[in-house]
């Protein structure tokens, strides 16, 4: 069973990274910003979902409600925080999102405490055994939800006017405004959608790694790696990269002695360096056009 089980475990870990990577890609694609606080916004709303389930609300309803509430949170973040830094050094916006991460982490801790909490799964707690390999319904469910989200995003971005406008705004805000697009509304919509997606990610991950104010920190690193590796504007790329990262690190950690489980984090990072040197825009990303 060994190797195959490691692959399945890797895919499962990869789907965790992919969920957050998708939200990162969405914000970047819609507004050109890499939002370090994306995971933490999801954590906040996952706690809201947890409070709802503790009050007796069914999990699915709680998660959907939290996602719905996330939309205005994302909109407000863009409107009242991020927009004030439009035109600033890109670095400043990165630091603003880091500040938001720290603030939200503190808020979550102040409200719900720092003891990690179990979070009910959206899927039945059952195991399917194929040969010697154990696959849980949750793992399959997570993967299916992810693929559905990717498909949905692809359709929105490539087949709808709304998606086209979003891409136009991220690409060049000024020209979009000149050609009559409601830039501000589009930016807010992009952030709102990403926040809802980030909440979904946190709620999918939470049953596995437990609710904790800092639960997304480690995931964020992998998700960032996946998003950059896949190309920051490609949802498909992010998911493929996340799954590859999950499998590669598990196989390497388990079977290459010098790496071992402690240094397995080096594997995706090394992979990323190699790929980026060949394709700085990521595997699926579009080449950045440099203007003089």
């Amino acid at each position: 069973m060994g190797a195959l089980q490691q692959v399945v475990d890797g895919l499962s870990a990869g789907s965790i990274y992919a969920a957050l990577a998708l939200a990162l890609v969405l914000v970047h694609r819609a507004t050109g910003v890499v939002n370090f606080a994306q995971g933490e916004m999801g954590v906040l709303m996952a706690y809201v979902a947890w409070s709802l389930t503790s009050a007796g609300v069914p999990v699915l309803v709680a998660v959907l409600a939290a996602m719905a509430l996330s939309f205005p949170l994302g909109v407000a973040t863009e409107r009242f925080l991020i927009r004030r830094f439009h035109g600033q050094d890109g670095l400043v916006i990165v630091v603003v999102t880091v500040g938001l991460l720290i603030l939200l982490n503190g808020i979550v801790g102040a409200i719900w405490g720092y003891v990690s909490k179990p979070f009910p799964s959206l899927f039945p707690n059952e195991v399917i055994r194929l040969g010697g390999v154990a696959v849980t319904v949750e793992q399959i469910g997570n993967l299916v939800v992810l693929l559905a989200v990717v498909a949905g995003l692809q359709i929105i971005f490539l087949r709808t006017r709304f998606g086209l406008s979003l891409r136009a705004v991220a690409d060049n805000r000024e020209s979009s405004a000149l050609s009559g697009l409601a830039v501000n509304r589009l930016l807010m919509a992009g952030w709102g959608m990403a926040a809802a997606l980030g909440t979904l990610a946190a709620c999918l991950i939470a049953p596995k790694i437990f609710l904790d104010p800092s639960m997304m920190n480690a995931v964020l690193v992998y998700s960032l790696a996946a998003a950059v590796l896949g190309g920051l504007d490609s949802p498909v790329g992010a998911v493929v990269a996340a799954l590859v990262i999950g499998v590669a690190e598990n196989i390497a950690g388990a079977y290459i002695d010098i790496i071992g489980t402690d240094l397995k984090i080096a594997v995706p990072l090394l992979l990323m360096v190699v790929v980026l040197l060949g394709r700085p825009q990521g595997i699926f990303g579009r080449r950045e056009v440099v203007r003089v």
Partner: peptide
């Protein structure tokens, strides 16, 4: 390798340095 990259790609490569340094130090 890093001088060939910019922006997010460079940020990711540099963020990986401490991530590898900590387990290595241990």
């Amino acid at each position: 390798p890093a001088v060939r990259l910019r922006g997010h790609a460079l940020a990711m490569i540099t963020i990986s340095l401490p991530l590898v340094a900590v387990p290595l130090a241990k």
